[in-house]
Amino acid sequence: MPAAAAIKVMVVDDQTSMRAMIRRSLQDIGFKDIRDRPAASEALSAVRSDRVHLIISDYNMPEMDGLQFLEAVRGDPVIGKTVFIMLTGSADREIVQRAAALGVNNYIVKPFAPAALKEKIERVFGELT
């Protein structure tokens, strides 16, 4: 059982309010090391220079969307195995299927409850302490 406090997280969403809400939810679960970026391109360079264990990324972002970000992460030999959870405002089957084909670890449809976020993270990491 990993300790949530030991897991480094990068939250990527172009909406400041959504990043703050996700950060609060993660802190309530017990995460301590939470970074965030408003754009996937910024997050990509940040995680390349300072690796994280978990990326939680929105799908719908300008410039580089969540699927393009996921593809860039999976294509990188250093960070390619990083756990990636996609947030989406719709349960669009095509987006979910494309994310699965690219190797997403899990996805969450917004809006979501903090308990749902914890459950999705635990499906990948195992029960958190």
Results as ranks from 00 to 15, higher is better:
Pro2Asp: 07
Pro2Gln: 02
Ala4Thr: 06
Ala5Lys: 00
Ala6Tyr: 04
Val9Glu: 10
Asp14Leu: 10
Asp14Tyr: 07
Gln15Leu: 14
Ser17Tyr: 13
Ser17Ala: 15
Met21Cys: 12
Ile22Thr: 13
Gln27Ala: 14
Asp28Ala: 14
Ile29Met: 01
Ile29Ser: 03
Lys32Phe: 04
Lys32Tyr: 06
Lys32Arg: 09
Ala39Glu: 13
Leu44Phe: 11
Arg48Cys: 08
Arg48Val: 05
Arg48Asn: 07
Leu54Arg: 05
Ile55Val: 13
Ile56Arg: 02
Ile56Asp: 13
Asp58Lys: 03
Tyr59His: 14
Gln68Leu: 13
Ala72Thr: 04
Ala72Cys: 09
Arg74Tyr: 07
Gly75Val: 05
Gly75Glu: 12
Gly80Phe: 05
Lys81Met: 07
Thr82Met: 09
Val83Tyr: 03
Met86Gly: 09
Thr88Trp: 01
Ala91Ser: 15
Ile95Asp: 15
Val96Pro: 03
Gln97Met: 15
Arg98Trp: 09
Ala99Gln: 05
Ala100Lys: 09
Ala101Ile: 08
Leu102Thr: 01
Asn105Ile: 02
Asn106Ala: 15
Pro111Met: 14
Pro111Cys: 13
Pro111Ile: 13
Pro111Glu: 14
Leu117Asp: 11
Leu117His: 03
Lys120Glu: 15
Glu122Val: 02
Arg123Phe: 08
Leu128Tyr: 00
Leu128Ile: 01
